[in-house]
């Protein structure tokens, strides 16, 4: 995965970058399966690797080809990125270690969801139960965001046709 990302940073042919991004999304989906997040992995493979790639290829068709080479060396962004990374790595040392059953994430609401959701919603898949039942308003908000984005895309691309 790291190799794919590095190749994406270096590659200037945008078509290759899009294909690499698709490969990267599939690798990410595999990692998510390994982390027991099967629902998320399925969504990532379908949406991240599928829909995103189609959208990127479509946009690439309309905007075309390769990326221009910048004149100055990108030292400032590199330094900034490394500095942010160093600070975050220092911060990560204070986080609970991997797969620690006593970490706050596992002791807050999760046990209740796992224990009571079958009884309360009748859905054995806890992710679906939480998504559609306990956090239903969240999902409603999500659909509003998607609707707004779709409306925005249509508005932007329709104006273009009228302008011609």
């Amino acid at each position: 995965m790291a190799v794919t990302v590095l190749a994406m940073v270096l590659q200037r042919n945008l078509f290759s970058v899009v294909v690499l991004f698709s490969i990267y999304s599939f690798l990410m989906a595999t990692v998510l399966v390994a982390l027991d997040a099967v629902d998320v992995a399925m969504t990532e493979a379908a949406v991240g690797a599928g829909v995103s790639t189609v959208l990127l290829l479509g946009a690439l068709h309309l905007t075309g080809g390769t990326e221009a080479k910048r004149l100055e060396r990108p030292l400032v962004p590199l330094a900034l990125a490394v500095a942010v990374g160093a600070v975050l790595a220092y911060g990560s040392l204070g986080l609970p270690s991997f797969s620690d059953p006593l970490a706050p994430i596992h002791t807050h609401v999760a046990p209740r969801y796992l224990g009571a959701s079958v009884e309360e919603t009748g859905v054995p898949n806890v992710v679906s139960a939480v998504l559609a039942s306990y956090r239903g308003y969240d999902t409603l908000g999500e659909t509003i965001v998607v609707f707004t984005a779709g409306a925005g895309v249509i508005a932007l691309l329709r104006r273009r046709r009228k302008g011609r």
Binding site: V40, V126, L131, T139
Partner: peptide, 10 residues
């Protein structure tokens, strides 16, 4: 933990 899965699906 199911909660992060839900959040990330969104």
């Amino acid at each position: 933990n199911p909660l992060p899965h839900v959040l990330i699906l969104t």
